[in-house]
Design a protein around this nucleic acid. Sequence first.
RNA 1: GCGCCAGUAGCUCAGCUGGAUAGAGCAGCGGACUUCUAAUCCGCAGGUCGGGGGUUCGAAUCCCUCCUGGCGCGCCA
Length: 560
Amino acid sequence: MGRCQDRGDRGQRGVMKEYLREQLLSTLKKRHLLPEGDFEVEMVRTRSKEFGDIATNVAMKLASRLKRNPREIAQEIVDHLELDSRRISKVEIAGPGFINFFYNPDWIYTQLQEILEKGDSYGKNDIGRGKKAQVEFVSANPTGPLTIGHGRQAVLGDTVANILEACGYSVQREYYFNNAGRQMRILGESVRLRYLELLGEKIDFPEDYYQGEYIKEIARHLLEKYGDSLRDRADDPVFKDTAEQLIFEDIKKTLKRLGIVFDSFYNEKSLYDEGKIDEVIRLLREKGLVYEKDGALWFKTTEFGADQDRVIVKSTGEPTYRLPDIAYHKTKFDRGFDLIVDIFGADHIATYPDVLAGVKALGYDVSRVRVLIHQFVTLMEGEEKVKMSTRKATFVTLDELLDRVGEDVTRFFFVMRSMNSHLNFDLTLATKESEENPVYYIQYAHARICNIEKFAARQGLRFDPSADLRLLKEEEELDLIRKMAEFPQVVIRLHETLEPQNLAQYLTDLATIFHKFYYDYRVVTEDRELSLARLALVRAARYVFANGLKILGITAPEVM
RNA sequence: GCGCCAGUAGCUCAGCUGGAUAGAGCAGCGGACUUCUAAUCCGCAGGUCGGGGGUUCGAAUCCCUCCUGGCGCGCCA
């Protein structure tokens, strides 16, 4: 693991990229083609394999600065470029002036070899080695079951955490909640009223209380446990506390189904109890960043680019939500996280700049914070749009979705699209679509490989790492290796973008190439040596599928 | 009025930070199982990348402007 420098590019492909970049740079210098000022030799992906494995656009970028024909420049570069033929077997000029490089097949085999050697750890890197990261997500107050909307955030957050783990970070998954606010007070009251109803009292249940059936269930639970002894205990915290406890259990159970387990639950209330709220006020006061007006305390967010200052303590003496949020984020820094990821729904788009301004005001390095905003899931019941509200109990729970389409499909569905896009979720089509879900396409590839290995074992053939990989000469075989070799770069890119759909996309592409190979060639043939080489090939593919699916939190079945 | 996100095939969406002929899955049409799993493969059809300007060798991608949809813009959280 020692060879990793602290740069983006790693692995064989990265090494090749650097090699070509250096050779090109020295050729440009030699031919006095290097312009004044900044100039980067850029290596780009090729559109398809007929354009080689990797290309550069330097000739085109130089054309305007040198006022010369790009193809002519490309020709001059190629004529004077000295390359190791063991690495690059062919160089071509194509299109408007691309210089395309073709890897020597030997080089491709070394990439396959690397996958086989690394196995389960292939694709991982140590960008985050020795660093602590925290991902905060879901963070729904325990006022009701998780909905499909929460599901998107839950899966997104957990997948981001998986990505960071694959990059060597030590990751903490945290759930932030508040059990002391108005919402929770109403929750407790809602339960109490339903309890009284069960005791036969006539209750006028307010419209803005929690309407869900689960409130009645909690009330029944109280009735069984305490009988009618709570009838006149209007101020007893037991209503709220029991509701909180039962709902949290429910939430955790749902998350567990998706394979999501939080390392930490952070209660907003503790910020008050431990004096962290007052501390923030004191610090901001010392820095002269707050002032009083109209009986309220204002934070000078305008000094951090906002259009107006914000109230952090109301004239009633109560803090606004901003203050605990800032104090909470302060604890993230104080707890020593090198990378802090916040995942919010689109409705919080306007609040996070205030929070960042707050921690910045306290002297922290805001560049450690990555805020991921995801758009909402629009739930469709056929043509009908369903407005979801926990309060009104017009929601479809995450559990119901899991019952209908299953855990793997749910996870894949929520990360196969960009978080920036609205997700149209037609419930009536969910089950039907799940039968054709692309997640099966990927899982099937993995299962097929497992089956091949079982079949081969029955023929007395087992994966042998010393197989002669040079027997893999077919285009489909080389395509598969090329695609697999991209995997470490994909993970590095995931670390940069934190956009899991890139991985979903990659695995789908890889599965396409694998299935095509499978259809065209048999792994187990009469030719023992070739069979061993192909067994090594599919073993490598199995590693990549399994490693990729693991990051997505999706099972890699051996049989389907 | 202001901010953020989106607008790409009939539908749902990708498009790797400005590259070569814009892709996939559904849906439609036509083919492929005596074979290691047909949850697969092959082919056909489907596009003024919301409209209009601009930047440059080159734009779905960057800038400006307009249109449409979503989410926000509180001494609510």
